[in-house]
Design a protein around this nucleic acid. Structure first.
Length: 181
DNA sequence: ACGAGGATGCTCT
DNA sequence: GAGCATCCTCGTC
């Protein structure tokens, strides 16, 4: 399943996640978004990656097989989720930064505590789907959180520098799906 | 629309 | 002890 996720080139994989669906079976009602913004992190080739200096207690999930979910806590407050890619052991991952809510809107507004800005940021996306550190290391193929095919529409994609980092700031490894008019 | 500042706790040096 | 792959609120324009 998702055979292309184990490709060596995480920068090529990242934009292919745009338009895919991310479905959560956490809680009573399923929730789902279409992935709209991602960033590539290239393991030991990438000073901005959590895996840059090799395995640690926090980042072990990054060195698992492609299709593993890596969840970490950001700024002591928020959870952020990544899709592990590449051959097992390389530490590549794609940060999921934003999604368009499609299923379970009521549950997402409950979890977010507001009616707007439900999943337009990495911490907000994880919160809307009910994803926490308890999901770190699970498979995105057969678990509570799943990566599913999109509708197959062709998306216009814009590449920009990554957000919120202080190292390797020049690499245009953030990919945003342009909303068609 | 945009920017500054504070909240908050874990990870690794 | 420093440094975060962030979010929210409250100011301005």
């Amino acid at each position: 399943m998702h055979g292309w996720l184990d490709d060596e080139d995480v920068v090529a994989i990242a934009p292919r996640l745009l338009g895919m669906r991310l479905r959560s079976e956490v809680g009573d009602e399923p929730t789902e978004v279409v992935i709209g913004e991602v960033e590539a992190y290239a393991g030991d080739q990438d000073p901005a990656s959590h895996a840059f200096r090799g395995p640690t207690p926090r980042n072990t999930a990054m060195f698992g097989p492609a299709g593993t979910l890596y969840v970490y806590r950001s700024y002591g407050l928020h959870w952020c989720m990544n899709v592990v890619t590449g051959p097992e052991g390389v530490g590549h991952a794609v940060l999921l930064r934003a999604g368009i809510p499609t299923v379970g809107r009521d549950t997402m507004t409950d979890r977010r505590g507001r009616l707007d800005h439900l999943a337009d940021g990495p911490g907000k996306l994880a919160q809307a789907l009910g994803v926490t550190g308890a999901h770190n290391g699970i498979s995105l193929s057969d678990g509570e959180i799943r990566l599913l095919p999109g509708e197959g529409e062709t998306l216009a994609v814009r590449a920009t520098p990554r957000v919120g980092i202080t190292k390797a700031v020049d690499r245009p490894w953030r990919f945003v799906a342009e909303i068609p008019l």
